[in-house]
Design a protein around this nucleic acid. Structure first.
Length: 265
DNA sequence: CGGCGGTCCTGTCAGC
DNA sequence: TGCTGACAGGACCGCC
């Protein structure tokens, strides 16, 4: 579920409950989610204050007072609830000094909790993520543009949904080699990425199955998809049928009329 | 180094 | 009403 917009809405929802609070207790119901949670993490952050809640790509970072910060990754199915009844798959529970209780739930256990480390990839909301930066990165890559967008070491935060939607807005075929895109296409793609992320954040993210905001409400951006998950349904632009293809093991959705294959050279 | 397939998990849905 | 297989928002690892 969680790409940048989903993690951002979770972050915004958590801030009023956790920022400035002191952690009183950390309960690990599952010491391993995707990876093993460091054995000393719970003890290290107990009685420490949460200074700030940041986000880098799809990772949410809690800066702690006097100790290393912690990094949450929501994987495919992670979500947070505040002051809520226990549920199956609540792997981490955090109790705060004001009596508040944060529950991290992740059925598929692809999520992770670790110390915050080096930040890789450029976040789309980083001022460094300019159109010219994107163009320069695309020039270096020969692979299909869709899989390049999913490479978190280049841009971090774009996932399967927003890669598909941004390419649709830009009318670029997902199999186009990244380095064959024109400067103009790079500039348009840059704008489309920012637009689709902005719109999705304003809608509370996309809820396909697991994503909910901290208050339990679902996001609404899935109602605005042009192509994602719409195989066989009419393209909102030309009425032709949306198609699905597989790239690097992931489904890609696109409109073959609006996003025609680019001729080489 | 780049690119791709397999793998880690649970849950749901379509098709038989 | 089962059962089975495909598939799901992600990202590591190992292989060419």
């Amino acid at each position: 579920m969680p790409e940048l917009p989903e993690v951002e809405t979770v972050r915004q929802g958590l801030i009023p409950y956790v920022e400035g609070r002191v952690i009183k207790k950390v309960i690990l119901n599952r010491p391993n989610i995707r990876r093993v949670i460091p054995a000393d993490l719970a003890q290290k952050i107990t009685d420490k204050k949460i200074k700030a809640v940041r986000r880098h790509g799809k990772t949410m970072i809690w800066d702690m007072d006097g100790v290393p910060g912690i990094a949450w990754h929501l994987g495919m199915s992670g979500s947070f609830r505040v002051n809520s009844e226990p549920k199956k798959h609540d792997h981490v529970v955090i109790e705060l000094d004001d009596g508040g209780e944060i529950r991290f739930n992740d059925p598929r256990r692809f999520g992770a909790l670790d110390y915050a480390g080096d930040l890789k990839g450029t976040d789309p909301y980083d001022p460094a993520f300019s159109a010219s930066f994107l163009c320069a990165q695309l020039k270096k890559r020969g692979g299909p543009i869709k899989t390049v967008l999913l490479d978190q070491t280049i841009i971090t935060g774009i996932g399967n949904i927003y890669a598909c939607e941004a390419l649709f807005l830009t009318k670029i075929h997902p199999a186009t080699s990244a380095h064959t895109l024109s400067k103009k296409q790079g500039i348009t793609l840059h704008a489309a990425l920012i637009k689709v992320l902005d719109d999705a954040i304003r809608s509370g993210g996309s809820s396909l199955r697991d994503h909910v905001m901290v208050n339990g409400e679902a996001g609404k951006f899935q109602h605005h998809f042009n192509v994602y998950g719409r195989t066989g349904k009419p393209c909102p632009c030309c009425d032709g049928a949306i198609e699905r293809l597989k790239q690097a093991g992931r489904s890609t959705f696109f409109c073959p009329q609006c996003q025609p294959a680019q001729r080489l050279g």
